[in-house]
Amino acid sequence: MSLSTLYAMTGVALFSLGFHALLVQRHLLRKVLALNVLGSATFLLLVGMARRGGDTPDPVPHAMVLTGIVVAVSATALALSLARRLKAAQGLVRLPEDMPE
């Protein structure tokens, strides 16, 4: 198993962990954590799999991951500020379980 494959597989494992947690965790902070793990997993996968071909690192996935990290932190900041407002306005730290359907 090559280095890249190892990390790509780590990515897959982390992705499933994060996905699972995103679905089952109720606390908003945990959902945000899950989302971040999910993001990191995808980034690992991206670089790991792209490296398979040659020896020299490919700049394209690197650029993609750098962008992705910035996006992830912005989304996290947005999510946390929403969570704070939700707590302040309605005292909620979880999403209402039963949705208004």
Partner: peptide, 13 residues
């Protein structure tokens, strides 16, 4: 707010 939060999570996923 709750709807927006859910939307954000779904959108990121």
């Amino acid at each position: 707010l709750a709807a927006a939060m859910r939307y954000l999570l779904v959108s990121m996923l």
